Simulated assay, not measured.
Amino acid sequence: MDSDFLPRIGITIGDINGIGPEVILKALEKQKITKLCTPIIYGSGKHLSKYKAELGFDDWQFFTISNTKQANRKKFNLINCYEGPNFPLDLGQVNKEAGNLAFQALKRATDDLKNGYLEALVTAPISKDNTQGVEFDFPGHTEFLANAFEAEDVLMFLVSNDLRLGVVTGHIPLEQVKKQINKKSIAKKLELMKASLINDFGIQKPKIAVLGLNPHAGENGMLGTEEKEIIEPVINEFRAKGNLFFGPFPTDGFFATQEWKNYDAVLAMYHDQGLTPFKMLSFDSGVNFTAGLPGVRTSPDHGTAFGIAGKNEADPGSMLQAIFYAIDIYKSRTLNKELKSNAISPVEIKKIMKANSEKN
């Protein structure tokens, strides 16, 4: 890898009336990001200018470009994506045109990522219902990106310095969760998690914990049979192949006793089962990473937070970490490809990746 190369990181503006632009401004302002990457914001220069004026970021400047080839590695670059009627900035309020802007920014950035014009993508939060339309008929970013990349399956992987946690089922109603919990779906998510831990995080022999579906992990079948009939057999099949996969664990006790600290990652069965403890432990530093995509995509683990938009109260920590993770995961994947092409042993790969991580 060229030591002088700075990866181009696309950052979508999200819903302009939420806190997305605020955390972007703060994350880029207070850190010397341009020494680590070339940031390219996808959005509307006019609306971003009004937003930063509202927050008093008068000295914060961006460089308008029409494509990534024009990006200035020493500046904050912006590509104007919005095509539609003029609309005012209305912080904290839902506006359909703001949803259209959020989608157009996401679409342009995704196309650039697919075409190799970006090394990674960081997405600011959108209002999912406000973004819905003919071209965006998805529960969220994860599903949109999976469709855009024609990925057979992806993993919603929440990561922080303390905890990595994925979910079998994502943005679906709770009543549908049980229908989608089966041996195939669990096995696929475990494969994605294992591959990501190896390729994206440099953990060559990952130790993974699997949570149960029912209270007390079914209580030996008294409170549900999914653990004995579905989850446990899948874990046993993986362990028979030498994988360090364990469970199923009761969710409450697993986190209450801090058992999660003994594992490289945790697989939860459904959205709130996993995201509730994750956000309690890592809300200001957690990152949502889409594992299984050919391209690297991360995002902060919070929403639009309309209630505090424009009040200069938003914490940029999660956005900043999303940018850092995007850079690190891109570098990890690139290094893996280079090392494998040179036929270096797994032990040597681990040593080099560890040294690279400590250097960054």
Rank of each mutant, 00 (worst) to 15 (best):
Arg8Thr: 05
Thr12Met: 02
Ile16Pro: 09
Val23Arg: 06
Leu25Thr: 14
Lys26Trp: 05
Ala27Cys: 05
Glu29Phe: 14
Ile33Met: 13
Ile33Tyr: 01
Thr34Gln: 08
Lys35Leu: 12
Thr38Glu: 05
Thr38Leu: 05
Tyr42Trp: 14
Gly43Tyr: 00
Trp60Val: 05
Trp60Tyr: 14
Thr68Cys: 13
Gln70Gly: 08
Ala71Thr: 03
Asn80Pro: 09
Cys81Glu: 00
Gly84Glu: 01
Asn86Phe: 13
Asp90Arg: 10
Gln93Pro: 05
Asn95Glu: 07
Ala98Tyr: 06
Leu106Glu: 08
Lys107Tyr: 10
Thr110Lys: 00
Lys114Pro: 00
Asn115Arg: 12
Leu118Ala: 00
Leu118Thr: 03
Leu118His: 00
Leu121Pro: 05
Val122Thr: 10
Ala124His: 08
Ser127Asp: 14
Lys128Tyr: 06
Asn130Gly: 02
Thr131Met: 15
Glu135His: 09
Phe144Asp: 00
Leu145Ile: 06
Ala151Ser: 11
Val159Ile: 13
Asn161Glu: 15
Asn161Gln: 15
Asp162Phe: 13
Val168Leu: 12
Ile172Gly: 02
Lys178Ile: 15
Gln180His: 13
Gln180Pro: 05
Ile181Pro: 14
Ile181Gln: 01
Lys189Ser: 01
Glu191Asp: 11
Lys194Ala: 13
Gly202Met: 02
Ile203Asp: 03
Asn214Phe: 02
Pro215Gly: 05
Pro215Gln: 03
Ala217Met: 03
Met222Ile: 15
Lys228Thr: 12
Lys228Gly: 04
Ala240Tyr: 10
Phe245Asn: 11
Pro250Thr: 11
Pro250Arg: 11
Gly253Cys: 02
Thr257Phe: 13
Glu259Thr: 15
Trp260Ser: 07
Lys261Leu: 11
Asn262Lys: 08
Gly274Trp: 11
Lys279Tyr: 06
Lys279His: 02
Ser282Thr: 09
Ser282Cys: 09
Ser285Met: 15
Phe289Gly: 04
Thr290His: 02
Gly292Phe: 01
Gly292Tyr: 09
Gly295Lys: 04
Arg297Phe: 09
Arg297Asn: 03
Pro300Arg: 02
Asp301Cys: 07
His302Ser: 00
Thr304Ala: 08
Gly310Thr: 00
Ala314Leu: 04
Asp315Ile: 10
Ser318Val: 04
Tyr325Ala: 09
Asp328Lys: 15
Glu338Trp: 14
Asn342Cys: 11
Ser345Tyr: 06
Pro346Gln: 04
Asn356Gln: 15
Ser357Leu: 15
